[in-house]
């Protein structure tokens, strides 16, 4: 158990403390804290091979969200390639962000992929890869409807990563009723 958590008041969750705990979750999400730093120190730092940002635990989390967010459109005609394409696209989107933005996303992923931090953020899912759909949906609804703007913003950030990256794949154009752009024939230079 982490010292700053185990000897603090956080685990004695009276109603008032519970309120504090939710706030903590939000603060960790975008501002960072000593708690997230401590957990970070323990987590797996290895980025996935051929990726710039995503770690195995991030990928597991994102792939758990994808079928819940995208429902029948996932995996679509991409079939077995869908997960890899989605992850590559998300990773590319994140790779060109500023150091500051990437740090914020790192905190968001660390919060949501560490079971300890997740507990404090009010997302009581033990293992994303085996979590039932209802539980993941419950987590998404909880953040979407939260009274804390940081959680609502976190929900939009996850949507931007998963949903936008999905519909940016040309193969998924037709899921949006979009026939695609005109063909280009380059002149010989």
């Amino acid at each position: 158990m982490l010292p700053s958590i185990s000897n603090g008041a956080f685990l004695n969750t009276s109603r008032r403390d519970f309120f504090k705990v939710s706030l903590l979750g939000s603060v960790v999400l975008l501002v960072g804290s000593s708690v997230s730093t401590l957990v970070l120190a323990k987590s797996n730092h290895n980025v996935l091979p051929d990726f710039n940002f995503l770690r195995p635990s991030d990928a597991e989390f994102l792939l758990a969200l994808a079928p819940v967010m995208l429902k029948a459109n996932y995996p679509g005609i991409l079939g077995r390639k869908a997960s890899q394409r989605l992850l590559f696209s998300i990773d590319k989107q994140i790779s060109s962000l500023s150091v500051h933005s990437r740090k914020q996303l790192r905190q968001l992923f660390d919060l949501l992929t560490s079971s300890t931090l997740r507990y404090f953020a009010g997302a009581s899912i033990n293992d994303w890869s085996v979590a039932p759909i209802e539980q993941i949906e419950g987590f998404l609804q909880g953040w979407k409807n939260s009274m804390f703007s940081l959680k609502r913003t976190g929900y939009s950030a996850l949507g931007r990563l998963v949903i936008m990256s999905w519909y940016a794949q040309p193969e998924n154009n037709l899921q949006a009723g979009y026939p695609g752009p005109p063909k280009i024939y380059s002149p010989q230079e």
Binding site: V68, M69, L70, K71, A72, N73, E137, L140, K144, S156, G159, R160, I163, M164, S165, W166, Y167, A168, N172, N173, Q175, A176, Y178
Partner: peptide, 17 residues
Amino acid sequence: HPAMSSIMLMGHGDNHI
């Protein structure tokens, strides 16, 4: 266009689809 619209439509799941 689809990617930007998917974010502008907000939300997720069946209604979004």
